[in-house]
Every structure is written in C-alpha cells, then in structure tokens.
C-alpha cells in the first residue's frame, strides 16, 4: 500500500480509535456499569466519578509506562546481563569493560566539555540578544531570525556547518568561510577544522549554541519584561549606568529563569547525538556518550555495553530529574 494512504488510514484509525475509546468508555460507565438512576443512583454517581479519571488517564499511563518507565528498568537489567551468554547475569562486567575503554573516557570527557560550554554560551548569547532586542523598534524581526535555527534539524545544521568548515587545497578558492577568513587574515594553509583534536569539539559545539541561543533568548526576553519597572527606575535615579542596571538590577531578578534555561539546555546537551553522528561520527576524539552508545548498540551489537552507556547518561540527568520533581511538588503545595 502507498505509504501516504497508509499514513492517512493510520491517522483515521488512530484518531478515531482514541476518540471512540474515550467516548465509548464514558458511555459504558454512565449507562451500563453505574447508571445514575434507580435505587443506588447516589452511590453509582460517586463510583462512576471515582473511576472516570482513570478512563481519561489510561492511554497516557500505558504509553508512558511502556515507552519510558519500563525501558529504564529494562535497560538497567540489560546492562548487567550478557546477550552472548543468553542474557546471563554478569554483574558489573559490562561496566568494568566500558571503564577500560579509552573511547568511553574520551566520550565522558567530551560530554563534560559540552556541558560546560554549550549551556553557558547559549545562555550568555541568549541574554545578550534578549536585552539588545528588547527596546528597539525592529526587535521582533531580529528575534525571529535568531530564533530561526530552532526549526532546523541537527542534521540540517550539520550540513550547514560542514559547508562553513569546508577545506579546499591551497591552490584553489576556499568555499568554506572559515578557511577563507583564516587565509585572508594571514593563515598559511587551509585547515581541516574538524580533525584537530580538542578544538574540533568546539566547532561541533558551535552548531548547538547556534541552535539553542534562540530558545534562551525567547525565554529570557519574557523574563526581562517581567521585571518591575520601579526597580530599574530607582536605579536610574540613584545614578546607575546601563551596565550596572543590567548586571546588578536585572540579572539578579531573573536568576531563577536563567537556571531553568541552563538546565533545559543541559538536558539537550546530554542527549546530543545527531550533530556528532552526522559531522564526525566520533572520529578525531569528538566522541560523546550518546554516539558512543549508538556505536555499541548498532555497530558492535553489544547490548550490555550499550545499555551500560545509556545508564551513565541516565545517571547524569538524574540530579536534574530530582530537582525538577522537587520544584513541581513545591509548586503544587
């Protein structure tokens, strides 16, 4: 069958199925199981209302359970078993093997580098862009352009930046802007940027900073607008200059939002995969955990090792997870 038709059919079946599930299950509850009539009308209404939330929640709970909660436990189990031995329990052997792997430590090291650089730069650029665009007439247009990379896939961004980092032999015209500028400002020979260890990590990070800055800008700009005018006015009257106003009055008031932006980008960074996969595939010392894991799983077919690497990623997001839940509970009280 034509995939487009199949897709259409699935939309109809999926959407129709969902709607009819919700409709029919509610009808069943009200008309058949606990009808609000007869001698037990009051009791039936109460019972129906106790059950109803679970009808509404059932599909979501199933999907969340199967697609997110179960895999966490299953991955943990897989990480201590060996597929080659028919899934026998091997304890920490997978982890021990992984800790002996230089590539793993390279990935961990790079991930920490990403964690240091990308959230910091994205937030800083985002804050700068938010503050600068806030009070000029064409600010919204400028914002739209800085925000635009959010819509571009990591793979698309990888192509875009591969063109920027492109290298041609010295006797030809450079078509990558970076080499063209480098030669223009006195470089001796064009450089294959993505193969210089350590620095190539930064060239990959720039791609993510380029994408995430818009996100930081949008949120921080809203936060800046929420600052009470009086505080700024008071500072002006007291003779503060624009820089003092920005750093001493505004930043402290939006520090909460800065933390939220920072952690959100941190989570994106921890899962970063597509950029590295498409640009260097972890060669030249640019490996990161998510790509290391993909390597183990689908190239080396090593499920135990891959699961162990996945658990390390999980371990790294756990503090954020706990902090988020803590905040959410505080908010509800």
């Amino acid at each position: 069958m034509n995939p487009a038709l199949q897709g259409l059919l699935t939309i109809i079946i999926g959407v129709g199925g969902c709607v009819s599930y919700f409709y029919l299950s509610n009808q069943f509850l009200d008309k058949v199981l606990y009808p609000p009539t007869g001698e037990n009308a009051g009791r039936n209404i109460n019972r129906a209302n106790t059950l109803r939330p679970w009808l509404f929640l059932a599909p979501a709970i199933c999907a969340l359970g199967i697609y997110l909660a179960y895999p966490v436990i299953e991955t943990l189990r897989l990480s201590v078993t060996d597929r080659a031995q028919d899934g026998a329990f091997v304890g920490g052997a997978n982890y021990a093997r992984m800790f002996d792997d230089d590539k793993f430590w390279e990935a961990v090291q790079n991930n920490f580098l990403w964690l240091l650089v990308v959230p910091a730069l994205s937030t800083a650029f985002g804050l700068l862009a938010a503050q600068l665009t806030d009070r000029i007439s064409w600010g919204p247009i400028a914002k739209a352009f800085i925000f635009m990379p959010m819509a571009i896939s990591f793979v698309g961004a990888a192509v875009i930046f591969r063109l920027i980092y492109d290298m041609r032999p010295i006797d030809q015209n450079q078509i990558g802007i970076l080499n063209a500028l480098y030669l223009h400002f006195g470089g001796d020979a064009p450089i294959v940027w993505l193969t210089i260890p350590f620095w190539n990590n930064l060239f990959l990070m720039i791609v993510l900073v380029w994408i995430q800055t818009g996100f930081a800008m949008v949120i921080l700009s809203a936060a800046l607008r929420g600052i009470p005018e009086e505080t700024v006015e008071a500072a002006i009257i007291d003779g503060a200059n624009p820089f003092q106003i920005f750093f001493k009055i505004k930043i402290p008031q939006i520090s909460g939002t800065i933390v939220v932006v920072w952690t959100t980008i941190t989570i994106v960074v921890l899962k970063v995969f597509d950029i590295v996969f498409a640009m260097t595939n972890g060669q030249w010392e640019t490996q990161v955990l998510a790509n290391y894991m993909y390597d183990k799983l689908f190239r080396a077919n090593d499920w135990g090792g891959g699961s162990a690497a996945a658990m390390i990623i999980m371990l790294m997001v756990t503090p954020i997870l706990i902090w988020n839940i803590h905040n959410a509970r505080k908010e509800m009280k």
Binding site: L57, P71, I267, L321, I325, A328
Partner: peptide, 25 residues
C-alpha cells in the same frame, strides 16, 4: 482522585528521561 500529585511528579520526571534508554528495550 488519589495519587494525582504523584502522577504529575512522575510526568515531570519522565520529561527528562533520555531517549537513548528506550532504544533497545
């Protein structure tokens, strides 16, 4: 309904679970 806030907390927690974990299972 009982357990509502627990469920909300669970959703917030699952928000950050990395996709990578789900691949093999």
């Amino acid at each position: 309904f009982p357990g509502r806030s627990l469920l909300i907390a669970a959703v917030v927690g699952l928000l950050v679970v990395p996709l990578q974990l789900a691949l093999i299972p």
